[in-house]
Amino acid sequence: MSSVEYFEVECEEKKGAEYYRQIANDVLLDHNLLRVINKLHIFIDPKVPLFVATGTLKKITSLVRVRDIANVNPLEGKITLVIAEETYLAPMMKIFWERFGKEHVDQPDRFTVILYDVTEDPKAIEEIVIADPSKNLFKDLIYAFRCIAPEGFRLRKETFTSTRFSFAASENLLSEDIDQIIAEKFALMGETP
């Protein structure tokens, strides 16, 4: 948890808090999410029962464009793309098919994509957005917190923005003052609502 600026687990039962600190660490590490979390405060009250996680996020990497993963080389009426990073190849192909039509897009091997008879400027192609990692990030974060939260806490309230998040869960209806509790936890981290 070295990269996280603030990390606390608050619980009446000391031992339980210790275990949940370990669990949170393991899960976030497994899902490779420690790098995006800046501050994290987890509050658990087994008596209610209630699980609240609040935190702030580091600046999330911007959109992935074609130029980030491929070199675009225009040559004699065709445009050759040399792929450097395969992770986003599939979404890129999908966008090309939609935009140019399948008959204009060819992939002779794993690391090469060729566009035939495409009138578009190679510079414009470089700028095409192919993925937004932050969209998946929120899904990943929600999934991770569902893993961390005690099981059976099916009633949840989540708020995720690009800078901060809160996740509250319980097996009973969430009380009306849940927003206030969340605000208190943010205040503990030195964050104003």
Binding site: E13, K15, G16, Y19, Y20, I44, P46, P49, P150, E151
Partner: peptide, 10 residues
Amino acid sequence: VFGLGNFEHC
């Protein structure tokens, strides 16, 4: 063998 959770109260 019951494998339960971390909280006494629970």
